[in-house]
């Protein structure tokens, strides 16, 4: 992938630079709110990037991706509740739990295709939602307040807004780098080949579902990390994090930005969450505008924002 000067790359570079420099602006202007908003955006962008790996590159339309957000978050919350505050235990547990769940869901779901796959991933996420609602010891329906953020032993202080923001941003850039490496590796080529023509790939001799499953687990694990960050950001985790509308939000972010584009999900997440924030300041009934807007985007704007930028270059 050679870096060339086109609208798409310039936008990606500008957005990345903007995200890097944001704390400078907020500390200069004292606009703490922007930092809080963008911490949230960066975390969701990581989740969207992970969803894009399976949806955009792998062609696996998971409608239950928010489950990993919840599982990562609950791993942090439950361990914190039980008195285990160290991030060195909490975070690996969050990743392991999400990976395990993704392995189980993927192994069963990948037997199906198309709409059936959309629906079965949705069903598994709903199951996770109901399990979380049944955790009476950990707040049940009402959710679990996390009184102390993960402890990095003095290395990073998560209660500092700026440090936490840079941690999230580091995870996001790390995630994008990982996806970039995967997509351009032999493994990634196989997964993308499976999206285009499964029969041919199988005829060549690739075990289709094994490749897909590994990809599915990587994405789930990455989203689990986003979940751990999210729980630390809000100091709270509840079953609502896993509700199916949240999975829908994640899908919207990916599609809005442009599926199968490396940086697209980040732009999509920024667009979605900033728009939501903006509209909800204008009117209490922000969804009244957001809903039809989505419909219009689907009707007229194929390929999302990334596709728009790609067309810009060609004129």
């Amino acid at each position: 992938m050679t870096a060339s000067l086109n609208a798409r790359n310039v936008t990606a570079a500008l957005v990345a630079a903007g995200l890097l420099l944001l704390p400078l602006y907020t500390s200069a202007s004292g606009n703490v709110f922007a930092l809080t908003l963008f911490t949230r955006i960066v975390i969701f962008a990581l989740a969207a990037v992970s969803l894009n790996l399976i949806m955009g590159y792998g062609g696996m339309m998971s409608f239950g991706h928010a489950a990993y957000l919840g599982i990562g978050g609950y791993a942090v919350g439950i361990l914190a509740q039980e008195g285990v505050g160290s991030a060195l235990i909490q975070w690996p547990m969050a990743l392991a739990a999400s990976a395990l769940f993704a392995l189980a869901v993927g192994a069963l779901s990948l037997r199906t295709r198309g709409v059936y796959f959309i629906m079965i991933t949705l069903a598994f996420a709903q199951m996770a939602y109901y399990v979380a609602s049944g955790l009476a010891r950990y707040g049940g329906d009402d959710g679990l307040t996390i009184y102390k953020r993960s402890d990095f032993g003095g290395l990073i202080d998560l209660s500092s807004r700026v440090q936490f923001y840079y941690l999230c941003l580091g995870c996001l850039f790390g995630g994008i780098y990982l996806v970039w490496r995967i997509v351009n590796s032999r493994f990634g080529m196989v997964v993308q080949g499976l999206r285009s023509n499964e029969q041919r790939m199988q005829a060549i001799g690739f075990p289709a579902n094994r490749y897909r499953l590994v990809c599915f687990v990587i994405a789930g694990t990455m989203c689990g990390l986003a979940g751990a960050l999210l729980a630390n950001n809000t100091d709270f985790i509840s079953p609502a994090t896993m509700y199916w509308t949240r999975s829908g939000d994640l899908m919207v972010m990916v599609i809005l930005g442009g599926m199968g584009s490396l940086f697209g999900p980040v732009i999509g997440t920024i667009a979605f969450l900033v728009l939501e924030e903006f509209l909800s300041q204008v009117t209490e009934y922000w969804a009244l505008i957001m809903g039809p807007l989505l419909l219009l985007i689907v009707l007229f704007g194929r390929g999302g924002i990334d596709g728009l930028l790609g067309r810009l270059r060609r004129g």
């Binding site: 198309g114 899908m251 599609i255 969804a287 009244l288 957001m290 809903g291 989505l294 419909l295 009707l299």
Partner: peptide
């Protein structure tokens, strides 16, 4: 709206009708 989506990808259907859910919920609230 929806007749223009026939023949498109299922993902487009999911996204468009997800938008309609948002719309209807807030319309009812209003």
């Amino acid at each position: 709206a929806l007749r223009h989506l026939y023949g498109r990808d299922h993902l487009d259907h999911v996204l468009a009708t997800f938008g309609l859910i948002l719309f209807f919920n807030d319309a009812v609230r209003l």
